[in-house]
C-alpha cells in the first residue's frame, strides 16, 4: 500500500517536473503558459473569448520582438 502510494507520488513528481521543463523551455523563447492564460481569461474576463492556441502563439511571437530589448550580449 505504502509502496503504491510512493510510486504514485513519484509519477506525479515526474509529471510535474516534465511540465516545469516544458514551461521553462517555452518561456525561454517568450511563450507563456497557454492553459494559465485561458484559465485566467475565463475566470477574470468571462465576457471575453480567449484566443485559440494558434492566435495566442502568434500574439506572443509578435510581442517578443515588438520593440523591447529581449536579448543580451
Amino acid at each position: 500500500m505504502a509502496g503504491r502510494l510512493m510510486e504514485e507520488s513519484v509519477f506525479k513528481d515526474l509529471a510535474k517536473l516534465g511540465k516545469y521543463l516544458g514551461d521553462t523551455a517555452r518561456l525561454m523563447v517568450g511563450q507563456p503558459d497557454y492553459d494559465a492564460y485561458v484559465q485566467h481569461t475565463r475566470l477574470k474576463h468571462p465576457d471575453r473569448t480567449p484566443m485559440t492556441y494558434e492566435e495566442f502563439f502568434r500574439d506572443r511571437q509578435e510581442a517578443r520582438f515588438g520593440g523591447a530589448v529581449g536579448k543580451c550580449c
Binding site: D23, M28, Y37, V38, A63
Partner: peptide
C-alpha cells in the same frame, strides 16, 4: 496571461 503572468520561480529563472 500574456505580458504579466505570475510565474513559478524555477521557470522564471530559466527565462
Amino acid at each position: 496571461g500574456l505580458d504579466y503572468v505570475p510565474t513559478n520561480r524555477h521557470v522564471l529563472f530559466g527565462h
